[in-house]
Computed example of a mutant assay.
Amino acid sequence: MMFLLRMAFWLGLVLVLLPREKTPESEKMPQIGAADAVSAASAAVSDMSQFCKRQPAACEVGGQAASMIGQRATDGARKLYQMITDKKPNDHTSSIGDDPSESPEGGTAPHDTLEPGDLDVEWRLSAATTQVPQISVPDSTPAN
């Protein structure tokens, strides 16, 4: 709640300080200087601090309302956190993304369905590599 109030304050301050276009309507508006605005803001803050002394019933009801709103916000955040972190069972019917360890019978199916014989690799030389080329070597013995 305080975050929203702070954000509204700073956003309002930025919007007030943005430069304005000169239009005929803006020339008719009263021109207020920065010093006048600061003194008016400080007077408003000091008046707000005295409000609870003048109207104690309104401050008490406002405090209870703020407390109730804060509690509801906390409960809502807790509920949202539980919804995000709780893991729900798969309720979809497609096979994409299903856990392969779960079988329809309720038991667990093995992760690897290959037999040990399926994993043995049959390795053979190809026909091209089994033929050894015949290389003729010149006779290097001296002729007598």
Rank of each mutant, 00 (worst) to 15 (best):
D86P: 01
C59P: 02
G63T: 14
G97R: 06
H111M: 10
A43M: 08
A40W: 14
K53R: 08
A77L: 08
H92R: 13
A58I: 15
Q71V: 15
E60N: 03
D118F: 03
A65P: 01
D118H: 08
T74K: 04
S49E: 14
G70T: 11
D118P: 04
N90A: 03
C59T: 10
Q55S: 04
E122A: 06
A57S: 11
S39W: 09
A40F: 09
K88M: 05
K88E: 05
V45P: 03
S103V: 07
P104F: 11
T85L: 01
I69F: 01
K53M: 03
K53G: 06
D120A: 14
H92W: 15
S67Q: 04
E102M: 09
V61A: 03
G106N: 07
G70L: 02
T85H: 00
P56A: 02
P100F: 05
D75V: 06
I96R: 00
A77K: 04
P100V: 09
A57E: 15
H92C: 13
L119A: 12
R78F: 13
L125M: 07
M83Q: 14
T74Q: 01
K53S: 07
K87I: 11
A58T: 15
D98Q: 12
H92M: 12
C59L: 01
D91V: 07
N90C: 04
R124Y: 15
M48R: 07
A109I: 06
P89D: 05
M68F: 11
A73M: 10
S42H: 10
R72P: 05
A73C: 05
E60D: 10
G63E: 11
H92I: 13
A65M: 02
A37C: 14
A43P: 09
T74D: 08
P56D: 06
K53N: 06
P104D: 13
V38D: 06
G70Q: 02
E122F: 05
E115G: 03
I84A: 02
L119H: 13
T74H: 03
K79S: 07
D98T: 12
A40S: 10
A44D: 14
S94Q: 09
A58K: 04
P89C: 00
S95I: 12
K88T: 09
A34N: 12
E115F: 00
D86S: 01
D98P: 00
S95W: 11
C59F: 02
E102D: 11
D75L: 06
G76R: 06
A35S: 11
P104E: 14
S95E: 12
N90D: 11
D120L: 11
Q71I: 15
G62A: 04
Q50Y: 08
S67K: 01
R72Y: 15
S42W: 12
H111S: 08
S101V: 09
T93Y: 05
T74P: 02
L114Q: 14
L80T: 13
L119R: 09
T74E: 09
T113P: 07
M68V: 11
P116T: 12
K53D: 08
D75R: 05
I84C: 03
S103Q: 06
